[in-house]
Nucleic acid binder design. Structure first.
Lengths: 207, 207
DNA sequence: TAGATTGTTAATCGATTAACAATC
DNA sequence: TAGATTGTTAATCGATTAACAATC
């Protein structure tokens, strides 16, 4: 049961649509209808669901609630996950206040910054701590994810530090590809690159 | 010369690495070395470059500067592109201050908000205007991209408005899939979904 | 039972990799 | 010229789609 990258990318989208359906009071749905809503073929929906271990009932479809719960379980968003954010600039601040996270079980425990002017305050209710306290904080708190929102020049260094203290999940917003060993998961979110993709498509629309 | 989605996604990454190489004074590079740096096979590098119209020289490799310039040109990031941001909350504010954009030719002209308390000030030097002025602003300024950074509940409505006033590029940060006609390009950036992908990988690391 | 829809196998399609002739 | 490396065609691999038997 190997889940391919393509399916992992769709997994949160399934979860989002199933949550919507659940909130709308829909009890069960066929691969045909779910595919139509999400812009996928029924075949792909069934292949995806089977591959990540979901199950339906012939002649009936999929139970919205149990499929949703199954996805939540395999994504590990039932149990609360604590994060730290390295860098309290624009991006770090924005993420600390992103409302959607808490609903999905994510919690921001602290922001860290090397700029003394930014310390001793809170941003969106999250304390801003000096970077020197990061190791101690990681050792004495149950943190599973580190968000890299610091300048590019120190991003890999910061990633190395958090990995040294046992962090296995890195969510990187700095515009470089953070290098991690196999045993650490890193998702690079390159905002500029998505904008440049948009720009390319826009530029090649007419042709 | 149809550029596939897979290639479009890699295009900004090529640009980023070529810029780095250029800054490091590298004049030319082989598909072998470029692939090694970026984690791609030499074959893929050559296929990609050929497909978007780049060219090298047998026995020699690719000129870093001309490949970089070619990509900049097809991505349309030589000419300045003006953006407006709908929503001056956490995400909208962060984007208005993202340093990397201006270097790539992007410029934020204004933020728009429906909350009167947020008006009549600037965020990162960008004026915050009432949403009622959006149509006039779009008509009297040369804006090519709208950033949707408002609550989910009004995101599609805001997208419809900007499309009505001629915007062809939408960069969406609201956690819904914005629907656009073929003639409008939309890139949905789902922050929560990338975090959930990370969470899935983290949760399935040991198994 | 009959109808609907899954689970799964087979076919197709597209993207990546390999191979090699062309040529700088 | 000889060596290196592209451009491009062919082979492989993986993901998507189609088909259909299983079964609720």
């Amino acid at each position: 049961m190997m889940v391919s990258d393509a399916v992992i990318r769709r997994l949160p989208t399934y979860y989002r649509y199933l949550t919507m359906l659940h909130n709308d009071g829909v009890l069960h749905i066929s691969s045909f209808d779910l595919g139509k809503t999400m812009g996928l073929t029924p075949s792909q929906v069934r292949q995806d669901i089977n591959c990540f271990g979901g199950a339906g009932r012939q002649g009936f479809g999929y139970s919205v609630i149990s499929l949703k719960d199954h996805i939540a379980k395999i994504m590990g968003i039932k149990n609360k996950q604590n994060m730290v954010i390295i860098g309290s600039g624009n991006i770090g601040s924005a993420i600390s206040g992103y409302v959607g996270f808490s609903e999905s079980g994510f919690n921001v425990s602290a922001l860290f910054d090397s700029d003394e002017k930014k310390l001793d305050k809170t941003i969106n209710g999250v304390p801003v701590l000096p970077i020197s306290e990061l190791p101690d904080f990681l050792m004495s708190n149950d943190i599973s994810i580190a968000v890299i929102a610091c300048p590019e020049s120190v991003a890999q260094k910061m990633a190395n530090t958090v990995m040294e203290y046992g962090i296995k999940g890195i969510w990187n917003f700095a515009p470089i590809d953070i290098r991690t060993p196999e045993s650490v998961v890193c998702v690079n979110v390159s905002l500029l690159e998505t904008l440049q993709q948009l720009s390319f498509r826009l530029n090649n629309l007419k042709k």
